[in-house]
């Protein structure tokens, strides 16, 4: 049976109204929008969907791994309701402001602790920090090959077969397992869990591992955040008017002519 680990990040709701977007007074983190529950990073939901599609076709155990600080278990249980077999939460006071390297190191250690993992799946990037580094970092630390931007993942004859997006199309890559794959949103949205499943998982237990359980020391960051700020935006919209659609089109064309070379 295949063992598939999916790394899922819990993030502050990226679709919270912009009026609730706030940077801490120290200018080094954002303050989660008050009253809005966190959500699963949508890109990681795509990764879980990829895992579940493999499981639809063959015997596989899907384990969700989520790393963070004071994680909301009910939010993460959505993964179980959608069809994951096990949820392991890595939650420790020390897991704050880890950076990509520190995060990848802890996740890699947890994957080793799970043992015999065939496929590791991650979203193309987190829906908050947009960096897209942790997945590749895990692969580098575990010394396994990595395939980014998968739009389709299959397991055929003990190998993975991945359609990977490239600038002008896509390529098909085959690899022996273990392998790490990051998914692009083209793979599809996470399936809706049934109401029955949502109720059933409420009673399910969740494994929580702390830094000590992993026997790990927190790695110092390799990058330093000097400052977070809201960029200024020129919002002076110049209206194009005209007595007829033709006149307006003429006005638009004269703007386009200065911006585009055809």
């Amino acid at each position: 049976m295949l063992t598939i680990v999916v790394c899922i990040k819990q993030v502050a709701d990226p679709e919270a109204p912009i009026s609730l977007f706030q940077i801490s007074p120290e200018g080094n983190k954002i303050i989660p929008p008050p009253g809005m529950p966190p959500v699963l990073s949508t890109f990681d939901e795509n990764a879980l969907e990829a895992a579940l599609r493999i499981k639809d076709l063959q015997a596989a155990k899907v384990i969700v791994l989520s790393l963070g600080l004071k994680l909301a278990k009910p939010v993460l249980k959505k993964t179980l309701a959608a069809g994951a077999d096990e949820l392991i939460i890595l939650d420790d006071q020390q897991f704050e402001r880890l950076g990509s390297y520190g995060t990848a190191l802890i996740l890699a250690r947890a994957i080793k602790k799970i043992g015999n993992c065939d496929i590791v799946l991650c979203g193309r990037q987190a829906a908050d920090t947009d960096a897209g580094q942790v997945g590749l970092g895990i692969a580098e630390i575990l010394q396994i090959p990595s395939i980014t931007l998968a739009q389709k993942v299959e397991v055929v004859d003990e190998k993975v077969r991945v359609e990977r997006l490239i600038t002008d199309g896509y390529e098909i890559i085959e690899a022996a397992m273990p392998v790490l794959i990051t998914t692009s949103q083209e793979i599809g949205e996470l399936r809706y869990p049934s109401l029955k499943a949502i109720i059933a998982v409420k009673k399910m237990g969740v494994t929580v591992w702390k830094a000590d359980d992993l026997g790990i020391e927190i790695a110092p960051r390799r990058t330093k955040l000097l400052k977070l700020f809201v960029p200024e935006r020129n919002t002076n919209c110049q209206m194009i008017e005209g007595a007829s659609p033709e006149e307006i089109a003429e006005g638009l064309a004269s703007v386009l002519d200065t911006k585009i070379v055809i």
């Binding site: 090959p145 739009q151 077969r161 997006l165 490239i166 199309g169 896509y170 098909i172 083209e186």
Partner: peptide, 20 residues
């Protein structure tokens, strides 16, 4: 090499082109 690129298809995915 552990990865093998089996085939390449061009011009079929508009999404990535959009980004460029």
């Amino acid at each position: 090499l552990k990865l093998q690129v089996v085939e390449r298809f061009e011009d079929s995915v508009e999404g990535v082109k959009l980004e460029a």
